[in-house]
Design a protein around this nucleic acid. Structure first.
Lengths: 181, 181
DNA sequence: CTAAACTTTCAGTAATTTCTGAAAGTTCAA
DNA sequence: TTGAACTTTCAGAAATTACTGAAAGTTTAG
């Protein structure tokens, strides 16, 4: 399969950014191509469009599925698996945030919790524990918050985002109207 | 310099997580050690605590400074540079989000803007452009939102986070009280 | 059941990233 | 100025990560 110059630019850029986003180049390219393509694509077509090996495509698709960004679909009368984006662009954002939280924050929260529970035997360890607690609390607050945001209806969340820092006024207003705690 | 077992666990974990957070192991370890240590540390002490070369410390500190997470301080009567965390834990979070936006989102927004402006000559490119526009708009909304959040006072932001999805009710309330669009 | 059509796995290789340490650069006390 | 005390740079080596392609595994039509 042959990509148009426009699609190629897009795909190559996602490849370059991949490593910053926590996936390798191939995974970035695969996802870009799948998202932008009107029809689902099979592994064969992906390999030829990106000039990479069939095995590499298989590993990349596996990772994209672990991120829940891509899903296989069957085309009647064809034994090949075809792949398409799982959900719309909004879902893509939600899933990336969710998966990154799982990979980048949750393991650290576990470690910090354990270290904070240890009994420190000297001044320097107990100062370290104070910092760890601060980091833990902040990370946990952010983690909890992103979970909460994901529970909200997309419309509400969009309204909230569009409000931007204007939300400060709304919060103040609420405090004035419902001042009891 | 010798790290206590507790500090060592913390530092090693940050090293392992480093690559998921977009920095290398050394940078993660350096930052962990600096944050958790009561007093500023010099390059020599960092190298010996982490058993890494002096040159590697220099490069790591340079990167931490580019993230604005660490700053040099002078100790009177000593020619060495000492390093400490720039700001408190809250600032740390704010800066990481800000720098990651610059590195992970901004370059893509630029590319997408350009591709969307091109005139598409066929069905498939124009479908691709539709998707790119969706991605662009969503990324831009998130980017703008995080900028807005950073403008808010820490207290307001903390209140907002603690509210969690309860904010939905506050937004509804506002719509009822001020229904004129 | 069989075998063709497909997918996955994984050992070895290639590419990329990180690290070391020596040399070059900088700063400042005398 | 000078040179001792420090920092930075960077070429090459080491470590890590990604990729290929052949072999093994799986699925399904006949």
């Amino acid at each position: 399969m042959q990509m148009s110059p426009m699609i190629q630019s897009f795909v190559m850029h996602f490849g370059e950014m991949g490593s910053r986003w926590g996936v390798n180049r191939t995974v970035g390219q695969l996802y870009a191509l799948i998202v932008v393509n009107k029809n689902p694509l099979n592994a064969e077509a992906l390999a030829s469009a990106l000039s990479i090996s069939r095995g590499n495509v298989s590993m990349g698709l596996k990772e994209l599925q672990s991120w829940r960004l891509v899903k296989p679909v069957h085309v009647p009368g064809d034994r090949k698996e075809y792949y398409q984006a799982a959900g719309d662009i909004w879902d893509m954002g939600v899933r990336i945030i969710e998966e990154r939280r799982k990979r980048e924050i949750d393991p650290t929260l576990t470690v910090l919790r354990d270290l904070i529970l240890e009994t420190s035997s000297n001044e320097s360890d107990s100062h370290a524990q104070d910092k760890m607690r601060e980091i833990h609390d902040q990370m946990e607050m952010v983690a909890a918050w992103t979970e909460e945001l994901q529970k909200m209806k997309p419309d509400t969340l969009r309204t909230l985002m569009k409000l931007g820092s204007g939300i400060a006024k709304v919060i103040d207003m609420k405090d004035k109207l419902l001042p009891k705690k």
